[in-house]
Write a protein that binds this DNA or RNA. Structure first.
Length: 563
RNA sequence: UGGGGCGUCGUCAAGCGGUAAGACACAGGAUUUUGGUUCCUGCAUUCGGAGGUUCGAAUCCUCCCGCCCCAGCCA
């Protein structure tokens, strides 16, 4: 059983589930359900792939079938072993398993070659010797039919001989190509004698130099599905035009015929999900690599602190349909907050420290106060946090001239320090530039724990860290990578990169329990957001990434007040 | 002007001839030692538009409008 199986969320209806139910009812595939996730190992997986992964593996689980993990590795010039490693890791991390069903299209090269020979023998394929440019010219346009290649009517024997010599390496790249003989006037341009095999004298990440001809996607994909006994072959909408050739190849060969079903790919606001653009962001150093926490890659989201559960529930929530859409990033944020709210331990962390001295608190004294680890989960228990005369609070929690509705600290005001005492600000100390650098306060010993015996209330509760005990830390505040909802609509998507997508804070203070936080561990920094320990952490010097802020009604009020 | 798709709330998305689910977002309110969480409440008389069929249409028909995909020896 894989992790994902534990999700018991009722599956909402969608058109693919409908089709599978109908097929099961009619006995079309004898009740079998076999799907597959077929990435090309030419980049890292992103949230859009997660949608496909959840769909394929999820549907298979739901209907008691299996989902194959298959690499579509037919283009040696773009694919690398590094990518297959990361893809395998990401799929597993998401909570899915393929058992013994790990396949590579490259494992089918010999079979594919055989199928091509059969096509030649039946007159359904021929070797064309036109150049790439000429083939394009002969193809015609969207409105005008194409013309037949002068090599289209070579004899079967000549085609067989040429194809065999292509494989043997007798020709240079581009000299010949194997094409299906269909119809140069077909209204669907893909059907105008599509290329089946091309010569590529390149090293393949798995087959090495065993081959110098490589099959094209349209020839490989349908046959790989057929060989594996796939029932429902799910792909994105842009392959809709390719369904005709998918069906043609299978029928021309008379082999087992899976059904291709297309669905809309995921688009996310303030993100780019095209592999080309993602590669560009990495190559041009706009981000810090594939797993930069601002990247929509699975590895980036993981480093950002997203959990597999949150990503899976997001994928369930967005649904599956055939219409192009753009999902609000806020839905992704909702999904991670929902998950972390119920499981992340609460912790005190001051990101932008402001010193507070409690003048009537005994010098040198330290109290261990009891904190609740997670109010959403009583079983998480409590812990002790040290309190002393000198503390740090958040700079934003103090205002010398507070506006209406500001519940926090100000001159003469009384607030609660969470799980500690009520304090009142008695004095504000500034530097030469007039900036507030320290607060002098008094505390009420009777309010220990945070409640006043006389029943008096206080509007604000602040988080704090004892100055002498605080652990210095670095915290990275991330926000949207792009300034526009749809970067694809910018002249150049790089021109709407958000210059402030990363705010680096190097003088943060955390409560002592965080000193040795394990990389990957997620916490809620109370009142600030959810954060995740980064792998850059060093003993005594933790580094945290902000996963997502808490919902912030105060920020909304401020925005309104400014208007 | 070729072919293939798609148009239901700000964003996703159910609905499949019987009179518009749900989620996010947003707006109010209650509870709260996180301005968090939770809990209530509100949020499409209308389904791209116009005709038609029907007792009855988002669902069927016709026409129109808009958007997406296809001219790689990429996938």
């Amino acid at each position: 059983m894989t992790d994902a199986k534990r999700d018991d969320s009722a599956a909402p209806p969608n058109f693919i589930r409908h089709i599978i139910r109908e097929d099961n009812a009619s006995g079309k595939f004898d009740g079998r359900v076999v799907t597959r996730f077929p990435p090309e190992p030419n980049g890292y997986l992103h949230i859009g792939h997660a949608k496909s992964i959840c769909l394929n593996f999820g549907l298979a689980q739901e209907f008691g079938g299996v989902c194959h993990m298959r690499f579509d590795d037919t283009n040696p010039t773009k694919e690398e072993a590094e990518y297959v490693e990361s893809i395998l890791e990401d799929v597993q991390w998401l909570g899915f398993g393929w058992g013994e069903h790990l396949y590579y299209a490259s494992d089918y090269f010999e079979q594919l070659y055989g199928f091509a020979v059969r096509l030649i023998e039946t007159g359904k394929a021929y070797v064309d010797s036109l150049s790439a440019d000429e083939i394009r010219e002969y193809r015609g346009t969207l409105k005008e039919p194409g013309r037949e290649s002068p090599f289209r009517n070579r004899s079967v024997a000549e085609n067989l001989d040429l194809f065999q010599r292509m494989r043997a390496g007798e020709f240079e790249d581009g000299a010949h190509v194997l094409r299906a003989r269909i119809d140069m006037a077909a209204p669907n341009i893909i059907m105008r004698d599509p290329t089946l095999f091309r010569i590529r004298k390149a090293h393949h990440h798995r087959t090495g130099d065993a081959w110098c001809i490589y099959p094209m996607y349209d020839f490989t994909h349908c046959l790989s599905d057929s060989i594996e006994g796939v029932t429902h072959s799910l792909c994105t909408l842009e392959f809709e035009n390719n369904r005709e050739i998918y069906d043609w190849v299978l029928d021309a060969l008379g082999v087992y015929h899976p059904q291709q079903i297309e669905f809309a790919r995921l688009n996310l606001t303030y993100s780019v999900l095209s592999k080309r653009k993602l590669i560009q962001l990495v190559a041009e150093r706009h981000v810090d690599g594939w797993d930069d926490p601002r990247m929509p890659t699975i590895s980036g989201l993981r480093r950002r602190g997203y959990t597999p559960e949150a990503i899976r529930s997001f994928c369930e929530r967005i649904g599956v349909a055939r219409r192009d859409s753009m999902v609000d990033f806020a839905l992704l944020e909702y999904s991670i907050r929902e998950d972390l709210n119920r499981r992340a331990p609460r912790v005190m962390a001051v990101l932008k420290p402001l010193k507070v001295v409690i003048e009537n608190y005994p010098e040198g004294e330290v109290e261990e106060l009891e904190f609740i680890n997670n109010p959403e989960d009583p079983s998480a228990g409590t812990r002790k946090v040290p309190f002393s005369r000198e503390l740090y609070i958040e700079q934003d929690d103090f205002m010398e001239n507070p506006p209406r509705k500001f519940f926090r600290l100000g001159p003469g005001r009384e607030v609660r320090l969470r799980y500690a005492y009520f304090i009142t600000c008695t004095d504000v100390i500034k530097d030469d530039a007039g900036r507030v650098v320290e607060l002098r306060c008094t505390y009420d010993p009777a309010t220990k724990g945070g409640d006043a015996p006389d029943g008096r209330k206080v509007k604000g509760t602040l988080h704090w860290v004892s100055a002498a005990h605080g652990v210095p830390a670095e915290v990275r505040l991330y926000s949207a990578l792009f300034t526009e909802e749809n970067p694809a609509e910018c002249e150049d998507f790089r021109s709407c990169l958000n210059p402030d997508s990363l705010e680096l804070l190097t003088d943060c203070r955390l409560e002592p329990s965080l000193a040795e936080a394990a990389p990957g561990a997620g916490y809620q920094f109370e009142r600030m957001g959810y954060f995740c320990a980064d792998r850059d952490s060093r003993p005594g010097r933790p580094v945290f990434n902000r996963t997502v802020t808490l919902r912030d009604t105060w920020a909304k009020i401020q925005k309104k007040q400014k208007k």
